[in-house]
């Protein structure tokens, strides 16, 4: 018994090492979204493409889709862009939200790098992004058939993110009634 008591600090130390080891690998910028399982808050945004219809929350749902937050000032969005173009070619529906940006600048991105979006709206004040709990660009929400948020991805979508997390989730959502 006494020997066991002497071992307690060692045991606590081992537990602490475990906690630190897990925490080191955790990215503190990945905050849980408050919207998971909830419908996207109401919004109605002006278009990014001149003469196009805008983008409203009523456009979401019907099928599993992505809602991508981007901006012309966002460097990581440039890295992510080819991935979005690839997904569009593969038939994934992606809507865009041009966050805290001038619509002309947001449109310039689509002209120069290609346009992966079905609908895209300009959120110049950034208020719709704030309603979504966006902390930066790029961010991507997975929306289910009912128009509810099911997943939030922070940062550019990598091939691994798509293959391991987002595509399997979208396939599951497709099978949902």
């Amino acid at each position: 018994m006494k020997r066991l008591l002497f071992l307690t600090p060692v045991a606590l130390f081992v537990v602490l090492i475990g906690v630190f080891f897990v925490s080191l690998q955790r990215d503190p910028s990945l905050l849980p979204s408050m919207l998971i399982g909830k419908p996207v808050p109401a919004f109605n945004l002006p278009p990014v493409r001149p003469g196009d219809q805008g983008f409203a929350n009523a456009d979401l749902g019907g099928e599993p889709m992505l809602l991508n937050i981007y901006a012309s000032w966002c460097a990581a969005c440039r890295i992510e862009h080819p991935m979005l173009m690839r997904l569009r070619r593969e038939g994934v529906t992606i809507h865009g939200l041009d966050w805290k940006d001038e619509p002309e600048a947001g449109f310039g991105v689509l002209q120069n790098q290609g346009d992966p979006y079905a609908r895209v709206g300009n959120d110049r004040s950034g208020r719709v992004g704030i309603d979504l709990g966006v902390s930066g660009a790029p961010e991507t929400f997975v929306i289910d058939k009912a128009g509810k948020v099911r997943y939030r991805h922070v940062g550019a979508i990598s091939i691994e993110d798509w293959d391991q997390k987002i595509r399997p989730l979208m396939e599951r959502l497709k099978a949902e009634l």
């Binding site: 503190p28 910028s29 905050l31 805290k100 004040s125 950034g126 208020r127 704030i130 902390s135 930066g136």
Partner: peptide, 20 residues
């Protein structure tokens, strides 16, 4: 501040902190 997490939005110069 959700951008620079150990600052309050009162201290932070991040654009999002200003919006908040």
């Amino acid at each position: 501040c959700v951008v620079c997490q150990n600052q309050s939005i009162d201290d932070s110069d991040a654009a999002l902190a200003r919006d908040l």
